[in-house]
């Protein structure tokens, strides 16, 4: 498969020449394949947010290159707005960007900027609204009347409605309750499945990433720590703990079991798989299993 996102030695330094100078992203080389659902994880200040803002040209790298769909986005021929329609970026707390009189108009803002016809805009607004679970009558309300979770959905729909080839979400579930969190992530996964697009999900929660992402990009101190398939990343739990990242709690249980001398695999990161692994283990030991 061709890589849709490619970075070469991407480096970005803030406030060059002042005492506040800081390299936020250091020589990052990435190849992200089309159609993958990747999670990005790392500490606060590890450069995640800066990295993703490079991918749609909001930040110009200090050095290095960014290719989207094989195109150098800072090439003179390329119109940066076209890149932004191709790579949709949902910021942290996106509900604070809502401004229109109605939810409908707000979702339509992106598609309108793309210069689409009214019918096409209408189709996209209604389709994405339904996808993120907004009722038809909500579309004609003011976004400021809605609850926090609903506002978030409107904002995410606003980016989805541009139907980008790559959808990047920066902590889309921050500040939501567990139910709202699962719902939004489920909808994003569903959208990924339906449209076969590439998704990058930035999150602090290992659990969320483990549950939804096929591949994980771990950032540490402005550099890429690793970018591998989800099971492979969790095989390196000890290293992850070494850079201060917590592995999912269920993985921790299995690591502890192993430490206590029980011969069991440790690349377990979802509850379903945990159940299966334990049952397998018990079977192997020849115990009676009735589950």
């Amino acid at each position: 498969m061709a890589s849709i996102i490619r970075t070469e030695d991407l480096t970005y330094t803030y406030s060059i020449g002042t005492p506040f100078e800081k390299t936020a992203v250091n020589k990052v080389c990435l190849d992200i394949e089309e159609g993958t659902f990747s999670g990005i994880i790392g500490h606060t200040g590890s450069g995640k947010s800066t990295l993703i803002q490079h991918l749609n040209g909001l930040i110009k790298p200090t050095s290095g290159k960014v290719f989207i769909d094989g195109q150098d986005i800072w090439d003179k021929e390329v119109r940066i707005r076209d890149i932004r329609f191709k790579v949709g970026l949902v910021f942290q707390y996106p509900e604070y960007q809502l401004f229109e009189e109605t939810v409908y108009k707000d979702i339509a803002f992106g598609p309108k900027n793309m210069g689409l016809t009214d019918e096409e805009i209408d189709r996209r607004v209604k389709e994405t609204a339904e996808l993120v679970g907004l009722k038809q009558e909500t579309l004609y309300k003011s976004p400021f009347e809605l609850s926090g979770g609903q506002k978030r959905r409107v904002a995410i729909a606003g980016v989805m409605a541009m139907e980008p080839k790559v959808l990047i979400l920066d902590e889309p579930t921050a500040g939501l309750d567990p139910k709202g969190r699962d719902k939004i992530l489920g909808q994003i996964k569903e959208y990924h499945r339906q449209k076969h697009i590439t998704v990058l999900l930035v999150s602090h929660s290992m659990e969320d990433i483990a549950k939804f992402a096929d591949k994980i990009l771990v950032m540490n101190k402005a550099e890429v720590f690793c970018y591998e398939d989800t099971p492979d990343v969790f095989k390196r739990s000890d290293e992850l703990a070494g850079i201060g990242l917590a592995v999912p709690q269920i993985t921790k249980v299995f690591l502890d079991l192993k430490k206590r001398g029980i011969d069991i695999r440790t690349d377990v990161y979802t509850t379903e798989f945990a159940k299966k692994t334990i049952l397998e283990y018990l079977e192997r030991k020849g115990g009676a299993v009735n589950a």
Binding site: Q53, N56, L58, R81, R84, F85, G88, L89, F91, P94, Y96, Q97, F109, G110, N113, M114, G158, V159, M162
Partner: peptide
């Protein structure tokens, strides 16, 4: 905050 909002709207194609 302004910076963030500008970025967010630019990401939606605001010109």
């Amino acid at each position: 905050e302004t910076d963030k909002i500008i970025s967010a709207q630019k990401a939606r194609g605001a010109d």
